[in-house]
Design a protein around this nucleic acid. Structure first.
Lengths: 204, 204
DNA sequence: CTACAATGTGAGCGCCGCTTACATTAGCGT
DNA sequence: ACGCTAATGTAAGCGGCGCTCACATTGTAG
């Protein structure tokens, strides 16, 4: 008589585990994301999740993959096809905002090296990578796309992390918006004005 | 008769714990950095470290603080007083190199929000912050120092993280050096050429 | 309908963080 | 020199964790 009245088989325990994991992550941070806690919340025995996730890392990778697709969605929502420094600033702000609104998830997404075993996770990051590349090609046609994509992503990602670590003032959304906008516009508009010759230096 | 022949009191257990912790971190990653493992390596009972570190987080914060001062040392060694985009590229490379050579330590340093309770950690980050600020004031006298410092640090920090996450090719040191140099120079030289008027946009 | 594969359970091992009570010792005032 | 106190280390133990293994239940293909 393990369960009171419900069925022995859960039905969709995998999805239930992911849901529970995300709840725990939001509520108490990544330390609370234990297999046993997930099982408890899903109303199932402590070892049941191991039928769907080989080990804890598999579970957190799956959660991280969900985070990536959500981040991609937020970026696309900020601007479907950005092509100016202002557009770029809006996207950068969406990126930072995601990090600040889901700090535990954001940290989880970048806490460990993206293991090639988690296919979901790899393709999810590839989507973001291509999205950034598209922005750069439209906004900075003169620059080397690789170097510029790298720079833009690094800048935005670094901004998010600095905010997350409390190195920058994140007291009010407007403050964050103003600062991110200023930084991105300052660097991006300068880069856009550059002659394409500068890009040549990347490939000697 | 707890210990065979050595003294009952260790002498400097705190330093021994920090040493052991850093060894474990380098060898097996942050997951291996447990209080008990540290105690074992220091040749002491499992709970002895709690006399010097209130909880595990206190220990890892102390380790992170050491990481910050070492990072600051590496940056200063790369260039004591950088003032040109090329100097800046050298410092950025040192930053990225530190992350790639001590990945577990680097992740540890930025894994959790910098808790204000760890004084060492706070002052160590403040040192780096001022160092970056100094670079920016010398290299980009026309720009708004705050926005520019933020941008530079974010860019470099983001680069380090993207390398660490395997998003960029880190197969050979020369490849990394070339790419970091290209990205930093591309953005920095452009920013340096800007008219100071752009900085005004930050403070409307 | 039955055999099988998939899914969930229960017990248990070793490790972990941390607390509490106790043992040893260094250092200091007298 | 001596004893007191505080600092430092020890031993035992609690609950939680990741994970394994043997077993129970059930959907499903033949």
């Amino acid at each position: 008589m393990p369960k009171s009245d419900d069925t022995y088989h859960h039905g969709d325990l995998r999805a239930a585990c992911l849901r529970a994991a995300r709840q725990l992550l939001e509520e108490d941070g990544s330390a609370a994301l234990s297999v046993r806690a997930v099982a408890r919340r899903a109303g199932v025995s402590p070892t049941a999740p191991y039928r769907h996730f080989a080990e804890r890392d598999t579970l957190v990778s799956a959660v991280a993959a969900e985070g990536y697709v959500e981040l991609a969605g937020q970026l696309a929502a900020a601007h479907p096809s950005p092509s100016t420094p202002d557009d770029l600033a809006a996207v950068a702000l969406a990126y930072v905002r995601f990090a600040l609104e889901h700090p535990a998830m954001f940290r989880l997404m970048f806490a460990e090296p993206c293991d090639p075993s988690s296919e979901d996770r790899v393709v999810a990051t590839a989507v973001i990578s291509e999205y950034v590349g598209g922005i750069v090609r439209r906004a900075f046609p003169g620059a080397d796309p690789d170097a510029m994509s790298t720079g833009v992503w690094a800048l935005v990602h670094g901004l998010a992390f600095l905010y997350l670590d409390g190195k920058l003032d994140a007291s009010a959304p407007e403050v964050v918006a103003g600062r991110v906008g200023a930084v991105v516009r300052e660097l991006a508009s300068a880069a856009a004005a550059m002659s394409p010759a500068a890009a040549e230096a990347d490939r000697p």
